[in-house]
Nucleic acid binder design. Structure first.
Lengths: 347, 347
DNA sequence: GTGAAAGCGCTAACAT
DNA sequence: ATGTTAGCGCTTTCAC
């Protein structure tokens, strides 16, 4: 199906060693020899097999990427960033998704190691408690975490606590006093924890009372009635929601709309992630935006630096700047009065 | 960094051949030998390198996936479907994105072939005119196309012509007479062409005049003024838009909204793809839904069947059923009169 | 400047 | 049941 270096050698009338040199160190071979070999390569359509090289132990040119899911565009955006750089630099990507499942994570890492990847880029649930990361360090396998926010591991993310703080403060500046954080069922993730801390600090600093995060089932088609009740009834109902990610914010928005509540008139909403698609909503979702693609690129560069031996030992975690994406899902609350604007018709 | 089969053999006190058998055909080795070897494997943390096996020529366990982009969730959804099956069946995925660029496609395929993938799953711009597919066939490299809609190649998709036809007919049934198709700059894709044909046929069958597709820049943040003018001015302006994909529909919707036109009151919109996120819009986007994840799964099974030699030679293209996802972006038009509903305030 | 040969980790005859 | 050996495609000494 494919020719080997032997075929080329035979066709050109030289030894495989010379062919190898012609490919990897052209300047060390005679001009005419080189020409002949190149012609042979051309006519035979020869492409050196990475397998031989890989086995020889030099480099495999393989990088493993382990992600929770591609259903959340956050990760797809990161992956796109990685891939753009990777193919430009002659690396190939081996992809595995884990659905946040520990067993799948273990399996993925083992598979990737077995394949002799030169490095790993990944997002795990909780980088602080993850059992496999120490093993990786011990084995000398280089990796960079993406989105995981921890000072103890090589990682690229935003400052999640700070980003959440800034976001919630914006809500407060808009006059909101009763702000609730809404989180997925994934409260055990390092990011979610830090985002909650940021939320709580912003509240406290404004002299407000942080309340426990409201957990919402991510995949549910509808907002659970209990959740809806919590959000909309009673004098202490929140006027603004800080959602721990954009997808969740979108689900919540839809749930509210279906129940005929208006965003932002009846409820303000702030997301987290800054997904490209969530900006296409109407109204466009306000969101604490993380530079997802850039996070992917940065993780890549970081990994390359580590592989090259440029040990950036001092600062383990890279923090990329977040931005507050203005949307139209945050309404102003003037003092104690509820907004006077008319509710917009709901579909 | 990692132990080899030799180390295990030495540690256990057997030959590498026996170790190999212990791994690949345990029943052929003595119980106690097996136990010893297993213990050696355990303590040495040995994982057989696929590289050796791959080079040996058996199987590589590698499948190449080539996609235009991950920025469009259509492909991310497919990829998720593929990955779910792949890891369960012991395969690894090598991913490359091409941005619809011919050079990148060429490079990706070459890289994947060089890596000795056992098969390829991919989406190309136009499967009918693509120069590389014949080469693949000639080389005996197995592949399955995803989303590409052609009878001449092994592919998995929906019946794009028919799906578009059904979608546009729905618009017509809602009373729309002036329907325009909006397409990305990618009019040269096989799908886009078939979708246009479906559009045109639905129009003609209803005694209506199909008009040329309106091309819209995908990545533009705003709708071009000329496009907006085309959509909104004059007595012949369309009352409904059939967008060739959901992302485009979302961009168009936002453009219309910004110009203070209401969807669906001033303009009805129908998308294509059935993205999960576009259903979270408000109003939820009506869309000709393709089962993206299932398309990925199906392409995978198909490729596995081909690799296994189960040649489904007769029907090259698999057509999965599409569905019409009801949204709220299609308004009813009663006869010739424009809708009487009040426009909804725009953000 | 070029060739012969060893070896990367593994599997599969072929011996024993 | 186990060991010996050749060889997959390639790079790299080490000779010539």
């Amino acid at each position: 199906m494919k020719h080997t270096i032997k075929d080329v050698a035979a066709y050109a009338g030289f030894s495989i060693a010379t062919v190898s040199r012609a490919i990897n160190a052209p300047h060390t071979v005679n001009r005419v020899t080189l020409a002949k070999i190149r012609e042979a390569i051309e006519t035979l359509q020869f492409r050196p097999s990475p397998l031989g090289r890989q086995l020889r132990g030099e480099r495999t040119g393989l990088i493993g990427v382990m992600l929770p899911t591609l259903a959340n565009p956050v990760f797809a955006e990161c992956l796109q960033g990685i891939d753009d750089l990777a193919s430009g630099e002659g690396y190939r990507l081996m992809l595995m998704t884990t659905q946040y499942d520990a067993a799948r994570e273990r399996h993925a890492i083992e598979t990737l190691l077995a394949q002799r990847v030169e490095g790993l880029i990944m997002t795990v649930a909780d980088a602080n408690t993850h059992p496999l990361l120490d093993d990786l360090e011990r084995e000398g396998m280089l990796y960079v975490l993406m989105h995981n926010d921890t000072a103890r591991r090589p990682s690229v993310s935003v400052d999640n606590r700070r980003a959440a703080f800034d976001g919630v403060r914006t809500l407060i500046e808009h006059g909101h006093r009763r702000v609730t954080m809404v989180a997925g069922t994934l409260a055990e993730s390092d990011r979610a924890q830090l985002r909650y801390r940021g939320y709580a600090e912003a509240m406290q600093q404004a002299g407000l009372e942080p309340v426990p995060a409201l957990e919402v089932d991510f995949n549910a088609d509808e907002l659970a009635p209990s959740v809806l009740a919590h959000l909309t009834s009673g004098p202490k109902r929140p006027t603004a929601l800080f959602c721990s990610n954009d997808l969740l914010a979108m689900v919540v928005m839809r749930g509210l709309r279906r129940a005929r509540y208006s965003v932002p008139d009846d409820m303000s909403i702030l997301g987290f992630d800054g997904l490209a698609v969530s900006e296409l909503l109407s109204p466009p979702l306000a969101s604490v935006a993380t530079p997802n693609r850039e996070i992917g690129c940065s993780a890549w560069r970081r990994l390359m630096a580590r592989i090259a031996g440029a040990d950036d030992g001092e600062s383990l975690s890279f923090r990329l700047p977040h931005t507050l994406r203005q949307g139209a899902t945050i309404g102003a609350l003037s003092g104690a009065a509820d907004p006077a604007l008319p509710s917009q018709p709901v579909v």
